[in-house]
C-alpha cells in the first residue's frame, strides 16, 4: 500500500527513551506556562488522533466515522456524572467501555468491507448514531449535556482545580499513548502489520484477518471513547459537535497533517490544528477558519505526504 511506515526512532540519533523523557518534562512544566484548559484540549484531541491512527496508520483502515466513539464516550460519561454522582474515574471508565462496545458492534460490520467501502460503512453507521443522539432523551438534543461536574478523583482530589485536572488528563493521555505504542509493538501488532502489508498473504498463512482488524477497531474505538469522556470532563460539556461528521473529518486532518503511521504524528497534528483553531477563532480571521484549515490540508497532502513528523524524519535521515 505504500502508506505508513512504522515509527522506529532507531535510525535517528534520538533514542526513544530520551525523546520521551524530554516530552514528558515539557508536559509537566507546560501548565505553569500555558493555559491548562488549552493544553487539556490538545491532549484529548491528541489521544483521539492517536487512537484513530492506530487503525489508519497501523492497520490500513480509514474510518470515516470515528466521531461516534468520541461522542459516545462523552455522552455516557456526561450522563453518569450528572445523574449518578459517581467518581470521575468510574465515569470515564464507563464512557470508554460504552465506546468500545459500540466499536465492537460497528467494527464487526465494517471490517467485512475494504477500502472506500469500509470508509462508507463507518460513515453511514456514524450518521445513524448522530441522529440517534439528536433524538435520544438523555443527550439534551441540540443543547447537549451542560454543566457536567468534574467531581473528585477517587473521591478526594478536586478536579475543579484546572491544574489538578490537567495532571489527571495527562495521566490518561500517557496511558492511552502507552497502550497504542504497546499494541503496535506487540505480537498482535506484528500480525496487524503483516495484514496491512499483504492481506492475501496473511490469509494464506492462516490468519483470519477480519478478526485482527476487528480487535484493532475495538481498541481504537475504546481509546477514542476515552478521549471523548475525558474531554467532556474538561469542558463540562457533551454536545452534538463531538458526534458530527465534521469531527470525523477533523481527526483525519490531524492525523494526516501530523504524519500517519508514526507514533508522534497524531500528537503533533492535533497540537497544530487545535492551536491554529484557538488562535484564529479569537482573531479577525475567525470567519475564514474552515477555508484556512482546508488550505492547510491541501498543502499537506500535496507537499508533505508524510505529514510533519514524517517529513521531519525524512530530513533527519537525509542529513545526519
Amino acid at each position: 500500500m505504500g502508506i505508513a511506515e512504522e515509527s522506529s526512532m532507531k535510525t535517528t540519533r534520538f533514542t526513544p527513551s530520551k525523546l520521551n523523557l524530554v516530552l514528558l518534562l515539557l508536559a509537566l512544566v507546560a501548565p505553569f506556562v500555558l493555559y491548562p484548559v488549552f493544553l487539556m484540549k490538545v491532549l484529548c484531541f491528541a489521544l483521539f488522533a492517536c487512537a484513530f491512527n492506530l487503525l489508519l496508520g497501523f492497520a490500513g483502515l480509514l474510518s470515516f466515522g470515528h466521531a461516534v466513539f468520541l461522542g459516545t464516550g462523552g455522552y455516557v460519561t456526561g450522563y453518569l456524572m450528572i445523574n449518578t454522582g459517581i467518581t470521575p474515574e468510574l465515569g470515564i471508565l464507563a464512557g470508554t467501555l460504552a465506546a468500545g462496545l459500540v466499536g465492537a458492534l460497528y467494527g464487526k460490520l465494517a471490517v467485512r468491507r475494504e477500502g472506500i467501502y469500509f470508509a462508507m460503512v463507518t460513515l453511514a453507521l456514524a450518521q445513524l448514531a448522530f441522529f440517534f443522539y439528536l433524538q435520544a432523551p438523555f443527550t439534551g438534543g441540540e443543547d447537549g449535556l451542560q454543566g457536567v461536574p468534574r467531581g473528585h478523583l477517587f473521591g478526594f482530589i478536586d478536579l475543579a482545580n484546572n491544574l489538578q485536572m490537567y495532571f489527571f488528563v495527562l495521566a490518561i493521555f500517557l496511558f492511552g499513548f502507552w497502550l497504542i505504542q504497546r499494541t503496535v509493538h506487540s505480537p498482535f501488532g506484528q500480525v496487524l502489520k503483516a495484514i496491512r502489508e499483504n492481506e492475501p498473504r496473511a490469509i494464506s498463512l492462516g490468519y483470519n484477518v477480519n478478526d485482527y482488524k476487528w480487535v484493532a477497531f475495538i481498541i481504537s474505538a475504546g481509546l477514542a471513547g476515552l478521549a471523548g469522556s475525558t474531554k467532556t470532563l474538561v469542558f463540562q460539556l457533551a454536545s452534538l459537535t463531538d458526534v458530527h461528521w465534521h469531527m470525523s473529518g477533523e481527526v483525519v486532518l490531524m492525523t494526516l497533517v501530523g504524519g500517519m503511521g508514526t507514533l508522534f504524528g497524531p500528537l503533533v497534528g492535533a497540537a497544530a490544528i487545535v492551536t491554529i483553531q484557538n488562535y484564529l477563532s479569537g482573531g479577525e480571521l475567525g470567519n475564514y477558519i474552515h477555508i484556512i484549515m482546508g488550505a492547510i490540508f491541501v498543502v499537506c497532502v500535496l507537499a508533505f505526504r508524510n505529514g510533519i513528523v514524517g517529513q521531519f524524519r525524512k530530513v533527519l535521515k537525509q542529513n545526519f
Binding site: R182, S186, P187, F188, G189, Y212, I219
Partner: peptide, 10 residues
C-alpha cells in the same frame, strides 16, 4: 497462540 496479545511486548 499469542497473535491477539496486544498487551505483550513483541
Amino acid at each position: 497462540g499469542n497473535s491477539f496479545h496486544f498487551w505483550k511486548h513483541e
